[in-house]
């Protein structure tokens, strides 16, 4: 209970800190938002009026508090370029990016865990070596290039999907998931390669621990030692990695969305960055921060479930 409170407090504090840093960065560096909204031919009195209206004359912290309160209430400001509420622009895109990241995450686990265990059990064998080689190359491929290769091979040559033929989740959920499969795979493969490598070495490391020998001395066979004793220990470092990987995947989906023309958060983020549409950029970054922090919280929880030593602290 005390732990939960502590975690939530730290969650809120980190979120405030990150959003303040983002807010401050956007408030200080880009110059005058009123100017950029009105254009250079605005008269000084127009500018002053707009500044007053936008509250730009008040201290930074007050403006931040104001902004944070309305953010929580669902008002994320107004887009400079589209003159629309930001919340309306991004809330229905959030599920797309999130689905993509979660699918990529699941694919990562589905690829890395069985292969990692297999490679560890057959350490030094031919398949282990083959996996090692494929792994090294996969880790070196930028996900977006993987996406381009997939578009070419699976989309244009094999015609398993229509490049650019995104299906909205609001009309056809299975079609939506099907379209996201290859983008998710492109994000997942490099991460899976890293997770696999980590799991393999972790399993091999744990196999050499004393407790594994104890388990054998009780009459466990190799499978029992692996699944009853080693795996839970071996997963501890992998969970940490997967948590960071999931955060990376949320960010990585921004690029992959461009490759596969998926109208998710990444798409709006890119247009807003090139258009200097700061309220949108700001809102998206804060949303991603929330996602990343939630992921961290979940990782922490999973960690406590599998490693009793953490629970004591």
């Amino acid at each position: 209970m005390k732990y939960a409170v502590q975690k939530i407090v730290s969650f809120v504090m980190t979120l405030c800190l990150v959003s303040f840093l983002v807010f401050a960065a956007f408030a200080v560096i880009p110059g005058d938002p009123a100017l950029s909204k009105l254009g250079t031919d605005a008269t000084p009195s127009q500018l002053a009026a707009l500044r007053e209206e936008m509250g730009l004359n008040r201290p930074l912290l007050v403006r931040f508090a104001d902004w944070a309160v309305s953010f929580v209430q669902g008002d994320m400001g107004t887009s400079y370029s589209y003159d629309r509420p930001v919340s309306g622009m991004i809330l229905d895109k959030l599920p797309i990016t999130l689905t993509l990241a979660v699918m990529a995450f699941l694919l990562t686990i589905m690829i890395a865990v069985p292969l990692g265990i297999y490679a560890a059990r057959h350490e030094g064998g031919k398949v282990d070596y083959l996996i090692y080689c494929i792994n090294q190359v996969t880790m070196a491929v930028p996900p977006f290039f993987l996406g381009i290769l997939m578009t070419f091979f699976f989309g244009l040559v094999l015609k398993w999907f229509t490049p650019g033929g995104y299906v909205s989740y609001q009309t056809d959920v299975p079609g939506f998931v099907r379209y996201l499969f290859f983008p998710a795979l492109a994000i997942a493969l490099p991460k899976a390669a890293m997770a696999l490598k980590l799991l393999r070495s972790s399993v091999i490391h744990e196999t050499r621990q004393d407790y594994a020998r104890t388990a054998y001395s009780r009459g466990n066979n190799t499978n029992q030692v692996l699944y009853r004793h080693i795996l839970k220990n071996a997963l501890i470092p992998v969970v940490t990695f997967l948590g960071m990987a999931l955060a990376d995947m949320i960010a990585g989906s921004i690029i992959i969305e461009q490759v596969f023309s998926i109208p998710g958060l990444g798409r709006i983020l890119m247009t807003s960055i090139s258009g200097r549409d700061y309220p949108v950029v700001q809102a998206i970054i804060v949303w991603i921060a929330v996602l990343v922090l939630v992921v961290n919280l979940i990782v922490d929880l999973v960690y406590r479930i599998i490693d009793p030593r953490i629970r004591m602290e």
């Binding site: 980190t14 960065a25 956007f26």
Partner: peptide
């Protein structure tokens, strides 16, 4: 370290995007 940790939780490509959008 509080600040660094908060930023560290963030994917670095995203941080870079924020800066690029500023500068």
């Amino acid at each position: 370290m509080r600040i660094i940790d908060a930023l560290f939780a963030f994917p670095s490509i995203l941080l870079a995007l924020v800066f690029i959008s500023l500068i």
